[in-house]
């Protein structure tokens, strides 16, 4: 565990907490893509199956359980409790266009052709693109509330910090995982446009509004 990895994990945790608090406090999930949240739930469930097979550390297990639980709670708030506030019409990204290529890619490019390993690989690929429905929703409505922007910034920063962690691990431990690195780079690139808008607008107190 190095500082980049810890900062990445905390950023990930912060993102999830921000999202839950936003929905809970405003009693609304307007502006949030339920489809992205469904994809994240699939990501956590397929990746953290190793909770049952491999013990790594208490930290590792607790974080995995928290991510799965928070993801489930988010889905519950969006699809059950505050269903009426869910932005159906704008959340129109077709997730099968992400799911199917990720399944195929995981079957072709993986470290080991076993069920657990393919599910892990699938979750890594899916996570890299899972934010697309959310970014699509923001682009369709042309704006995002500040709190939603903070959520996206924390969530995007998490994988960017992991990239630093992987550079550090490569230098310090000669450890690297090409699948995770490739997907992490893709994931971070997808946020670049948003990062730019966040830094130039949201941090200066303006609302995130896309040019018409």
């Amino acid at each position: 565990m190095n500082i980049f990895r810890l900062a990445g994990d905390l950023s990930h945790l912060l993102a999830i907490i921000i999202l839950l608090l936003k929905i809970w406090k405003t009693r609304s999930c307007a502006g949030i893509s339920g489809k992205s949240q469904v994809l994240f739930a699939i990501v956590y469930l397929t990746r953290y199956l190793d909770l049952f097979t491999t013990y790594i550390s208490l930290y590792n297990s607790i974080m995995k359980i928290v991510f799965i639980a928070a993801s489930g709670a988010t889905l519950y708030l969006m699809y059950v409790k505050f269903k009426a506030t869910y932005d159906h019409n704008h959340d129109s990204f077709r997730i099968e266009f992400l799911l199917i290529p990720c399944v195929i890619l995981a079957l072709i490019i993986n470290h080991d052709f076993t069920v657990m390993e393919i599910l892990w690989t699938f979750s890594i690929y899916l996570e890299s693109v899972a934010i697309l429905p959310q970014l699509f929703l923001v682009s369709k409505t042309g704006e995002a509330e500040s709190i939603t922007s903070h959520y996206l910034f924390a969530l995007g920063s998490y994988r960017a910090l992991y990239l630093l962690n992987w550079i550090y691990r490569y230098m310090a431990e000669s450890h690297y995982d090409l699948i995770a690195i490739f997907a992490g780079v893709v994931q971070t690139i997808l946020y670049c446009d948003f990062f730019y808008l966040y830094i130039t607008k949201v941090l200066k107190g303006k609302k995130l509004q896309l040019p018409a």
């Binding site: 790594i56 590792n60 995995k64 470290h111 080991d112 962690n165 995982d177 995770a180």
Partner: peptide, 10 residues
């Protein structure tokens, strides 16, 4: 093992 190393991250 290498595989386990790969999975120590979240």
């Amino acid at each position: 093992s290498d595989l386990k190393d790969a999975h120590d991250e979240l």
